[in-house]
Write a protein that binds this DNA or RNA. Structure first.
Lengths: 191, 191
DNA sequence: CCGTGATGAGACATCAATGTCTCATATGGT
DNA sequence: ACCATATGAGACATTGATGTCTCATCACGG
């Protein structure tokens, strides 16, 4: 019985399904599995074959988001160079996953039970980046690292929503997030 | 068991019920009316007497949020004085309504159909505040007013969540939002 | 003391979402 | 050509939320 070889016959792109689910669930948290399957272009039966149920789908969404976020942190090499540059690189790598991240940070339903252990690790890496910037003198110290982390999450979500609403161009999101987070809206006196 | 310490026992405090609903629905968008009623301290029958159904409850939530937001804009007198001060005052007045606002900005379900006309008015007032700051030279012009508005919404939501998660103290939210939005995390050279 | 009105408790039917099943079809590999 | 696997379509029962109803209770005012 040496069958069960994975990887070639799988015509369903789980990542695509999950992204579709993230988009729909962000817009309407009560979206039915029927609609998710329909928009993803698969039947409800197939959706159910890949994800046992709604909870499993949400769980997979969480897993994917954490994985992508972690990958973005790695790709941005946030521990190298100055914190400002590291933060810019991070935003660049996070932006493509904005919709997914926005879903995870707003769907607090995930945290009613136990929260995924991966989040602790991500939060810690984020916090350490801001702390590093504070210690190097790049970042102000009157804003806690924890708040800066939460603010980044919030801004990423706001940007995703603004793009969806057509208020800002997709190509501008990266700059908008980075500039606002780093410099704020106030015109600097030095300029 | 008839308790409830209101002045008059025969009238349910709709505002209290709505705030409870906002809190619960923010944490879990699929919270049942049963649980909302229970946490609000009323029976499901009474909840249904005041709000015809889930949609009506959401609608009332939207109305309340818009009303409170509009009141905050008025109370802050955002058209008077410099834009920076106006923005600080606005944040001060908005902060108590953070949970409610956070719900409205994340519950995009509201916008699948027609979006409430009140939002246009609110967005316009917010945008004009940021435009005013740009024209007076206080705010930078490379960040659009629309984005600044969305960013404020996002930061208010992030702050509400951070407080709920115990990451920042309630008394600090005002400062955290204002300082980050105005000045960003980067240490200013002028200091 | 009694009546009006709001509420609490619960029964009941309904509906939508969900989970599970079967069967037919399509695809890819052997 | 044959077989294994994935998929699509749909039937079916179940579950939970919801809307509606009735009745008992409690508070307040006349």
């Amino acid at each position: 019985m040496s069958h069960m070889v994975y990887g070639c016959v799988m015509t369903v792109d789980k990542s695509h399904v999950l992204r579709t689910a993230a988009t729909l669930l962000t817009r309407k948290a009560t979206t039915s599995l029927d609609e998710i399957a329909k928009v993803a272009g698969i039947s409800r039966a197939t959706l159910h074959r890949h994800f046992a149920g709604r909870d499993a789908l949400i769980k997979a969404l969480e897993e994917l988001g954490i994985t992508r976020f972690e990958a973005a942190l790695d790709a941005a090499a946030i521990d190298e160079g100055d914190a400002t540059g590291a933060l810019r690189r991070l935003i660049t790598h996070i932006e493509p996953e904005a919709a997914l991240l926005a879903f995870l940070t707003t769907e607090n339903q995930l945290f009613v039970g136990e929260l995924h252990a991966g989040w602790d690790r991500l939060d810690e890496r984020m916090n350490s980046l801001f702390r590093r910037g504070q210690e190097s003198g790049e970042f102000r110290v009157d804003l806690t690292a924890a708040w800066c982390t939460e603010a980044l999450y919030g801004l990423v979500g706001a940007a995703a929503w603004a793009v969806h609403a057509g208020r800002i161009a997709p190509r501008d999101t990266e700059k908008m997030i980075a500039e606002l987070l780093l410099g704020g809206v106030r015109r600097s006196m030095e300029q």
